[in-house]
Design a protein around this nucleic acid. Structure first.
Lengths: 247, 247
DNA sequence: CCTGAATTGTGAGGATTTTAACAACCGCTC
DNA sequence: GAGCGGTTGTTAAAATCCTCACAATTCAGG
């Protein structure tokens, strides 16, 4: 590997850090070499550079595992979650301030926020914040603290101080388990603390879940079922009689 | 848009959440439709699904402009930044608590933290937090607040309360401009507030920049040059005589 | 300056992808 | 069930991309 070769590869990676996607022909022109040479450079650096049908991109984009995907939710039910959020998003009105819980479910809600609504969104999970940051019409308020990898969320005693200074129209909450007798539960106690505080402040509280959660019981309790103004699943709003397993 | 169509699209997005990259022909087989139909589905959902030379991937990977890339730093100097961080990372010792500033420079520092060090890192930028979250040996503390898209950072009056409760061994700071007379400056005033607070608390303060920043002056002042224990560029630690343009 | 190895460029072919037009099909209303 | 708009499948031509072999160039060491 000559110095020229290594330098060209470095320049290419440099380009990718700015552009994410570069077409083979463009890269060849930019680097002042033939397409064939760029091709060979890529083949020699598969760890760092990914190649897909004529387009070059940083290997980090493709490769690897999905950063914040929760291990437990990897099996997903993504279609049901999305459908539940289609129902839930109707609860949002223009110019409101909403709270968005952590987890994979409410990511879909973010995507569904209409672009012509001016929304302020409060969150405490990194994946939610990241998704929110792509919406130009949303002001984001993030609760900081110590990071919990399992749920990609933050927690800290300072959450409350921010929350006390904000008026929340609607809180959209998720749960890992819903049980008719024991209520809504989640995996981590630190999440439960935030959920409870938010539910005490928000004007309306909506639980958004896919129906696979019904009948399950997890470690951390955070609310009885009558604490929610509505429970929304992929079938729309459901009544108290739906929380029995086998219902 | 019929229900069948929407459902098929949802299934496709579902697949992408597990697989990141799927070939057109494979997706067609998996969904039980022709390639042409999958093509058309993708064309109708460019917001969520990206397509590149026969391969389907989640739009998040590619999409739009790079979310957190600072507009002013799009020209990058990524190689110099990386090199500067190679020097800076030597300042970190095992089991320390460090502060990492926002911007594109210190992203490289995160990558360079040795895996056998047990580090607590404080940050207030989403891209830094995201990168930190990939390191299993780093405990992350995030300062929350209102999101500022231009720098992917958060700011709020509550930052200080968290900072007061943490002991910081070393703070790694970035700047958009360094001027011998006027000191270190950045683009946004809200950043300057955080930087100043941190510098007052940390035991050691290091400014990490690529040399293209030298001689530039930006809006928001945050420290005189003698406020830093060292200034680190791609050439290593540099002295006060280096801050003159043309030096 | 010569030589050999490594690197790079070129071009042809075959494979794949893209586009567009048209035909077949579905679900809905009248 | 006839008609209609919207959806899907099929096909062929055009554009693009990939592979491979070979020629040209560069570079280091003698």
């Amino acid at each position: 590997m000559t110095a020229r070769k290594a330098q060209r590869t470095a320049r290419l990676i440099d380009l990718l850090s700015q552009r994410r996607v570069i077409h083979l022909s463009e890269a060849a022109a930019l680097l002042g070499v033939s397409e064939m040479t760029v091709r060979r450079d890529i083949a020699n650096n598969q760890g760092q550079i990914a190649y897909l049908g004529g387009h070059i991109l940083a290997a980090a984009e493709i490769e690897a595992d999905i950063p914040y995907e929760l291990a437990t939710a990897a099996d997903s039910h993504a279609a049901a979650k999305r459908e539940a959020c289609v129902h839930a998003v109707r609860k949002i009105r223009p110019d409101e301030t909403i709270f968005i819980d952590c987890g994979t479910t409410l990511i879909h809600l973010v995507d569904l926020i209409p672009d012509n609504y001016q929304i302020t969104a409060i969150c405490y999970a990194m994946n939610v914040a990241e998704r929110l940051s792509r919406k130009a019409n949303v002001t984001i308020i993030m609760l900081g603290g110590v990071y919990h990898p399992a749920s990609a969320s933050f927690s800290g005693t300072h959450d409350f101080e921010i929350l006390n200074s904000v008026g929340i129209n609607a809180a959209f909450l998720s749960a890992a388990g819903v049980d008719a007798k024991r209520g809504a539960t989640c995996e981590h106690f630190h999440e439960a603390v935030v959920k409870q505080k938010v539910m005490g402040l928000a004007r309306e509280n909506y639980l958004v879940i896919d129906s696979s959660k019904i009948g399950k019981l997890k470690r951390a309790f955070f609310s009885a079922m009558d604490g929610f103004d509505a429970v929304i699943t992929e079938h729309g709003e459901v009544g108290a009689d739906s929380f029995q397993p086998q219902a």
